[in-house]
């Protein structure tokens, strides 16, 4: 039963992920991404990581994809240019795929995954435990990512600011 649910959810998520990449219509792509995230949230629920599941839905499904849709609609991207798979693009894609496969292979061969995290007190299930880990073990990564996001935000503000026109100065 659990196995069946896992298979269904993974196949569903992967199919939707493929839909994101392959769909011609940008809105269809965004909706596929939404469904894919819902599938991943389902997988988290299966691991008893309810907190992670709901945070995923709240942040990614609720806000990030909605912003994607906002941008798609604002720029009115209907169809868009078809992306040619040749030359430098193809080479880059090939290298990226190779790296990904190597990484996954290494993880499968060398990584010592114990027989699943203990259910009930895993990081994703209890809010208290999760927050405690965030403020102790993972404090540095969280801070670094926060700074990176801040830098990105400042960059966007600087780039999107129009240069002051001579008329404005008057």
């Amino acid at each position: 039963m659990e196995h069946l649910a896992f298979t269904c959810l993974s196949v569903f998520s992967l199919a939707c992920a493929l839909g994101v990449v392959l769909s011609k219509n940008a809105i269809n792509g965004a909706m596929c991404l939404l469904l894919c995230l819902a599938g991943v949230a389902g997988l988290f629920v299966q691991l008893h990581a309810y907190l992670l599941a709901f945070v995923l839905v709240l942040v990614y499904a609720g806000a990030v994809v909605a912003l994607f849709l906002f941008i798609i609609m604002l720029l009115d991207m209907q169809g868009g240019r078809t992306w040619k798979f040749r030359g430098l693009n193809a080479a880059a894609g090939f290298v990226a795929a190779l790296l990904l496969i190597t990484g996954l292979n290494l993880l499968a061969v060398r990584g010592h995954l114990e027989a699943g995290p203990p259910i009930g007190n895993s990081v994703g299930s209890s809010l208290k435990f999760y927050s405690y880990q965030l403020f102790t073990t993972y404090l540095l990564p969280v801070q670094i990512i926060g700074f990176l996001l801040l830098i990105a935000m400042l960059g966007v503000i600087v780039l999107s600011r129009r240069a002051p026109q001579p008329e404005d100065a008057k």
Binding site: L34, F54, V55, V57, L58, A61, G62, A63, A66, L69
Partner: peptide, 8 residues
Amino acid sequence: AVASLGVY
């Protein structure tokens, strides 16, 4: 989380 899906 669920209420934020209403925007769609």
